[in-house]
Design a protein around this nucleic acid. Structure first.
Lengths: 336, 336
DNA sequence: CGTGGCGTTCACAACGTTGTAGTCTCCTCT
DNA sequence: AGAGGAGACTACAACGTTGTGAACGCCACG
């Protein structure tokens, strides 16, 4: 187990501060001393104590990522992307799960554990506009997902409205007119569900198709199980439909399963499109058409923005930014 | 931004050490002072600086989790379970991805970032027995997954051989005798792939079914894509088979997809069983029979064992332990 | 040969917390 | 009433690092 900078200094025959200078690549260290110190570091297997460094310098090299839960494929893949992006920039990631629960989300924002991180990437589900005041934490913060706060907070997200509209137009483009929606959230306007529903309605309006409440299935978390359940409700209602726009791929996969059990052919009877482009959609039967929302781009941009915020801490702040990723319709068999 | 223990002390009119005592629930603090301090803490919104605490006490309240990648559903769900278990015990989790790459795994073990954590849960893929010597790190370590090291390291895992044998016996039990395997690793003995193949062979032996190399598909990472590819190779080889034992669910889902494209009925023509019991298997068509390896139990046990090791640090060490979770066959439509 | 300047090194003081070793007060027991 | 002890609080020294400023040695220049 390592030892301290002092041990290295003793072995190398220099002051401990010189060791610190070597470790931090400070200028004005002669090559000879540098080599001597490096050798001592090597010999002792010294690694700096990050707690001490963090205490002294105020930087820990750790960023936090708060997501609803990793069991949801979208967030698992987002976490994967974030960890990669952070690692490429010399940071590590501490993950908190909120379960999408409002109280837990607030707790994460206020937890002393935040002190351990230099900044936070936060993907809220439960928090709404009313909580904006609660976001005045000192830790640099970048929001992922929907713009729920008006406050002065950076925000990196996908083009929900436009992408949902494009997905719906894709269905209309293959001749569908009675398009069911799975995954709406009652009364929501500015969350993912609300925005995607808006995109859906825009596409309908543009095509002159009337909007019908009976085609909308409201569900809770965007799990497979809820997709299945929403689909069952629509089938049970007896309403006529020839396509499904699921608000994410997991809902779509759950829904497809139920459709097939009910004897509906996909895409012959019902075309299905999802959202997120998680890996699974490629291997389902039929493979799932979806929207690639630019997840990797979101992760990288978010980490970059957070790093900028961390860097400017103490100095004057740039105004908050709103950044959007590129999306892309991925047409597969379920809408062929 | 918060402020320090000193600010609280000044406001409450006590010494800063008394504040520390209140924060840490030390005995010998009168109710009156405690209340006064609590009020001051509340008023200032004070939260302790964890770096300082960690520096002084040597504990950070952070544990590391190193997995191949979160995009693999099994590891995402494992991470979910670990984070939950850790949170319930007052710890947070810092996640590193190794990609299953030997060099990256070694790097994680030697990184100074380890200093930031009190201990590490490590799920190696690339490291082999030869690397045992490298495991003599000072950080408490608990291995997840296979017993790759002989060294004195705790190890929590599933009953790979027994569970694979049970899965194979389940296929035999529904009348299959020519059982293909997808996901083997060439020459591997003590990794998951090797152990599960051993279980498969045991079941065959017990039933008097000869082992045939042509039924074994060797693949790389246990992704859906590789499951599909392995299945395609077996189909292309023209070998006769009436069941598939996939070494995990993702491989199984990829394989099912290919089987169905090739016109094979599941389970009529080919019965399929996977391993891991990830959520997706419930909603595929047909739903996927699998082995529930006791993932949640593994996560909780591992966190508990790690906490014990952290606690005994400095004191004398208990001998390393080998802990196994309970498994269970989950029969669904794919083997009905 | 003295002086200024530069490159190099070092001593010291933080950062915010906890552990140790007190000090002081007040209560209880004989 | 005095000794003893427990309870409540406090002062001080760490933990290992980095920033600041000062000291050192050496060279070039006048």
């Amino acid at each position: 187990m390592a030892g301290t900078i002092h041990d290295v200094a003793r072995l190398a025959g220099v002051s401990f501060k010189t060791v610190s200078n070597v470790v931090n690549d400070h200028p004005h260290v002669s090559d000879a001393t540098r080599a001597k110190v490096q050798a001592a570091i090597e010999q002792l297997g010294y690694t700096p104590n990050l707690s001490a460094r963090s205490l002294r310098s105020g930087r820990s090299g750790v960023i936090g990522l708060a997501v609803p839960e990793l069991s949801l494929a979208y967030f698992a893949q987002l976490a994967d992307d974030v960890i990669r992006a952070a690692e490429a920039r010399g940071l590590v990631v501490l993950i908190e799960q909120t379960g999408g629960d409002r109280a837990r989300e607030l707790e994460v924002l206020r937890s002393p554990r935040l002190h351990l991180t230099d900044g936070l990437l936060f993907s809220p589900l439960g928090l709404g506009i009313d909580d904006a005041a609660l976001v005045d934490i000192d830790t640099p913060l970048v929001l992922l997902g929907e713009r729920i706060f008006n406050g002065p907070v950076d925000h990196v997200t996908m083009q929900n409205v436009e992408a949902a509209r494009a997905a719906t137009e894709h269905l209309i483009g293959v001749g569908r007119r009675r398009i069911a929606v799975i995954g709406a959230h009652e009364g929501e306007v500015i969350g993912s569900a609300g925005l995607r529903l808006t995109g859906y309605r825009q596409a309908l309006d543009a095509a002159g198709i009337p909007f019908t409440e009976e085609l909308i299935a409201y569900v809770g978390l965007w799990h497979r199980a809820n997709g299945a359940e929403g689909m069952r409700r629509i089938l049970a209602s007896g309403v006529d439909f020839d396509a499904v726009f699921a608000m994410n791929d997991e809902l779509a996969l759950g829904a497809m399963r139920v459709l097939q059990e009910a004897g509906r052919q996909i895409p012959a009877d019902v075309a299905v499109i999802g959202f997120d482009d998680v890996d699974e959609g490629q291997y389902s039967l039929p493979s799932l058409s979806t929207v690639d929302p630019g997840r990797t781009e979101i992760a990288e941009t978010a980490v970059d923005v957070l790093i900028q915020r961390i860097a400017e801490k103490g100095g004057q702040r740039q105004p908050p930014r709103e950044l959007l990723s590129q999306f892309r319709i991925v047409a597969r068999e379920s809408t062929a």
